[in-house]
Structure formats: structure tokens, C-alpha cells
Amino acid sequence: MNTNRFNVFNQIHKGLRALLFDTVMQIQQTDMSNAEAAAPVLEQTELLLHLFDSHAYHEDTCILSAAEQHSPQVIKDFESEHETDLALSNSLRQKVTDYRLGQSDAARYVAGYNLYYALNDFVAFNLKHMNKEEQLLNTILWTNYTDAEILGMEHQIQQQIEPEKMLTYFKWMIKGINNTELIIWLNAVKAHAPDFVFNALLETCQQNLPQDRWAVVEQQISEGAAI
């Protein structure tokens, strides 16, 4: 991994991993025979599926299409993996539907475990897939594009995401990255984005960071820290 180059996947993948891990912990700690208790798990699983579907689409159109010009066979393999991911997504989505159709505690208990195992399959595949993207696909991008060009691909993706969904991505990226990465991000947004975007990001940080982390980040931003 070349740490001196821009990693277009780092921030979004850390956010998506945070969402995956949080969802698994949530279902492991929930009595899935209880429909009321299970409702937040179902809602977050559906959110997870929605964000991963959107992420895969934007990767295909803005990242893989650029890399394909230089390594078509490698990109063909990634596209095949996205098809596998779609099948796992559909299976997990069906397990959510099956759970909602459960008419008894016993039926919901079984459906909850089926959902749990489908979620684990989805998580295991996507963790490996994201690692492969960061290790292999980044190498292709770095060999053939400048950091400025890769950053342009990221901006192209951001322009296609509606504001409400972007705030949801922000929430999980904030939860998933470290303080240094977060401060660099906040400084960049402060320098280049409208004030309302920066203020919305700060508010999302305050809402989603533990108080001790937020205090450190807020202090460094207010002091104009440039990392």
C-alpha cells in the first residue's frame, strides 16, 4: 500500500465497515423472536443494503470504468464480484422479508437466525472485496492516474449523491475513521465547500462521536489545526 498516494476508497470503506460491524453487533444482541426489539435491526439492515447498492453503482460507473481502460481483465473480475455481491444482497433482503412474515415468536426466532447468517455471509464477502479493491484496484489507479485525477473521480461520485443520503454516508464515515483523518476531512470541507455543508458536517460529528473524541476534534478545528 502506497501511503503517499490518495486512497479514494479509504474513507467510504471505513464508513461502510463501521456500518457492517455495528449491524452485526446489533443483531447479535437482539432477541429476534421479539418483533418490536427486532425492528431497529431490520431497519439498519435495509439501510445497509441501500448504501451498499448505491456504493457499488457509483464504483462501477466512476472508478471501474476508468480502470478498465488499463486492466480490462482485472476489472472483469471485479464486475463478476459485484454480481456475487448483488446475489448476496438479494438473499439478505429476502431474509428481512421472511422475518416480517413470521406470525409467532418461534417463527421469528428461526427467521432471525436465517437473517443473521445471511448478514454474516454478506459481511464476510464485502470485507474481503473492499480489501481487494484497496490493494489491487488502487494500484491500477495509481499507476495510470494522478491524485488530482482520482480526486476528480471522487468528486464525480459525490455530485451524484442526494444530500440526505450524503449525510447518512457522513454519519458512518465519521464513526469509521480516526481523528487525524477526520480533521483532514473537516479542514478540506471548510476550505472548499459552502459554509452550510461544513456546519452540517460539524453537527453530524457532534451527534455521532463520543464526547471525548468530539472535544479533541472540535478543539483542533477551532485552533485551525492543519495535519
Rank of each mutant, 00 (worst) to 15 (best):
I75N: 05
Y169V: 09
D53G: 04
E36R: 14
M1E: 06
Q158E: 10
Y99A: 01
L182P: 10
S54V: 02
H129Q: 09
E83D: 13
G224W: 03
H192N: 15
S33D: 12
E218T: 06
I140N: 04
A18D: 06
W142T: 06
I177S: 07
M130G: 01
L202F: 07
A39D: 12
K76G: 09
T180D: 14
T3K: 05
A191P: 03
R17Q: 08
D98P: 00
V216P: 09
L136M: 14
S71V: 05
D98Q: 12
S91M: 10
C205V: 04
M1R: 11
D195Q: 15
N208L: 04
A193M: 14
D60K: 04
K14F: 01
H50C: 00
D212N: 13
R93G: 09
D53C: 03
V74D: 12
A67R: 02
H155C: 06
P194L: 04
Q11R: 14
T204F: 08
N10L: 14
T30H: 08
T146L: 05
V41F: 02
L115T: 03
L209Y: 09
I27G: 06
S80L: 13
M25Y: 07
E36L: 13
A18Y: 01
I183R: 10
M25V: 08
I221D: 05
A107Y: 02
H129P: 03
E134A: 10
Q135V: 08
Y116W: 12
L209P: 09
K14R: 14
A111E: 05
E164C: 02
G112W: 03
V41R: 02
M173R: 13
L151Q: 15
